[in-house]
Design a protein around this nucleic acid. Structure first.
Lengths: 210, 210, 210, 210
DNA sequence: TATGAATGAGATTTCATTCAT
DNA sequence: CATGAATGAAATCTCATTCAT
């Protein structure tokens, strides 16, 4: 679920590493990827020195958090595919579980800088590809089932996700939850196979997303 | 279109002020609200000193840009309402013009920090309210026309906008444009008065958005 | 002798802290409390960063120097009281040792700004009060002995000190020393119990000095 | 009373110049000679441009204020010498009038920087010399009269003045006034011809004061 | 000529990263 | 190994001075 385990790592070191990633995930997600390293260290309950021993610089930490997150989402996607009776339902479930996706996307797309960092990383590239393959299967499946409009591809869906997942901060939790749910529902309605407006352009595939 | 003119301001000063806001809009929009002030000054073709004379600190600049932007969008909304034959078409046009909205929303909602700054500012609060009033009229109109699903309110639409407008950086411009257009179309389809999934919760009004 | 030790502080950090205060004392005393922080850091043999880690801003440094200084003077006063055979002699000795007081007073009273900063600080307030209590004892003692004119109180003496200690910069060191000694002597003569001019007003007590 | 009138100067320009000097005197005296030029301009009711047209830089302004002040004090000294029946009384009166001296001394001695500036200026040097000559006359006279202790010279008195005149800011105006009066009285008692402590060193003449 | 806008050098402050304890 | 102190480069901000209006 995390990554790059090289050498097994002693138990306490392991624990530190996990605490750091957890702290970083939460802080990045709340304040963006520019927070002082010391802040993250404090939140993780370790000294900066320890943080730097584990992650040589900020970029490495960002990468590690992203890898961890993509891995979680990939897990989710696979479980959904396996457990849901139809591809459409798997897709819908994934959309609703998307809170997890949140950070990945945030990191991947929010700040230009973070994106530069992540798009270099092969570990991330490969996870992202696996995720898109999974998504492609769902999309094709749901189209075969006749439930998903035929003029979209996995790229469209991924990008729609991406939009969604930029959680809207800073209003009451109740409204946040409600608004997320309702936005998802509206989007899902827009995705349903139905007359509707013909979409402009061409279906966006996973190859359109760098 | 801009704001807070206090004392008329000499012609050259005025020009500089406008250049600074324009530069800041563009740079904030591309790199977020943390870029060095010197960068912004350079892009505006003035010295840092000038920037600071006009805007005592970064927050003041962020506020000024947001005010300017909200004012533009409000303009757009009013023109759309006036010129389009139906409320639904006005709404659709506004959604498509939403690239303008981009920055307002980005600034208003993207980073927790920026949001804190903006939500204090009375000028912004009042512009935002005017905008939501405008939107409310469109929504009610379109529902009366029978084109907009009846279980949404202006808050829903605003939040949907907001999602949309977080332009997805960092892919080819062609894909960016395409994806934006297609996402809008899908959302619009989702908004159409039609069977569809009943939405969870209750319509979100403008009073639900702080 | 210094102050506010919160957590014990590592040996090297402690050493740095002391060096910074020493350097600041000397530089403030020579050039006033506006010298560039970098100057102070250099004089202390540390980087600016270190200085700022220890003292979050200039005010904090000023406060720390003042606390350190008041503490020294209080020490001096107590030793004088204990070791000298008469209160009068203790007072005279304190006056002559007053070069130490120099900076405290300079900082406390010289620049309006510095004074604002210091008068907030409870640590300084309490040290100053202790010092004035000490002084009051000397004054009362010397008056009982019949050596000090009866129409003064500790406030008068403190203010006289304060004047004196604003060392006159900027002439040859020899003249500086001489002039200080001579001024003290003249003032002491003025304080001796004698016919002399009756003083205007009323004795100023320590409650007259904020 | 002011200085360096080169060309007569138009009436309004003259007025501006005087306002600036008055404002600068008051502000320097309250906050030291480092206040922003803009502050001074504002207090004088003119733009910075005007200030700079009159005084090419801060040093020139400091010099002008000092010249103006020394001139006033010299006037006072001469009047005292002329109008008082004895040299001693003239001296005492001058001491009491010393509040006027305040700024001169403050500027002349307070900040090392200001002192550097002033000691270069020939106009000031000559005013100061005239003042010290005046003082020397009083001192000698009072010694001849037998009222002033014989082991002091005009340098001692000037330096004692100087100390005094660093008015102690920042307590209640009543205490300030009282304390000044009482300190002067104590010093005068200390200066009276009397047994007293023999002073250390040698009389300081005006040649000891650079 | 008076004004106040523009400039940029320098001061303050922050923080990523290294390194002694 | 973990810690947190030290460093200095880079950012923020201020202000003396010049110059367009």
């Amino acid at each position: 679920m995390s990554a790059d385990p090289q050498v097994p790592l002693r138990a306490d070191a392991r624990r530190n590493r996990d605490q750091i990633i957890a702290a970083a995930r939460s802080i990045f997600s709340d304040f963006g990827p520019e927070v002082p390293m010391e802040e993250i260290a404090r939140a993780a309950g370790v000294g900066v020195g320890t943080l730097y021993r584990r992650f040589p610089d900020r970029d490495a930490l960002i990468r590690a958090v992203a890898v961890d997150n993509f891995a979680r989402v990939l897990d989710d996607a696979r479980q959904a595919a396996e457990q849901e009776p139809t591809a459409w339902l798997a897709l819908v479930r994934l959309l609703h579980q998307s809170v997890e996706l949140h950070l990945s996307v945030q990191l991947a797309m929010l700040s230009k800088k973070a994106h530069e960092i992540l798009k270099e990383d092969p570990a991330i590239a490969s996870l992202r590809d696996e995720l898109l393959v999974e998504l492609e299967a769902m999309v094709r499946g749901a189209q075969r089932e006749g439930t998903l409009r035929p003029d979209v591809a996995e790229g469209d869906v991924a990008l729609l996700f991406a939009l969604l997942l930029r959680q809207l901060e800073s209003r009451s939790p109740e409204v946040t939850r409600l608004s997320t749910e309702r936005s998802i529902a509206i989007m899902i309605d827009g995705l349903k196979a139905q007359p509707g407006t013909p979409l402009p352009g061409r279906p966006l595939s996973r190859h359109d997303i760098h």
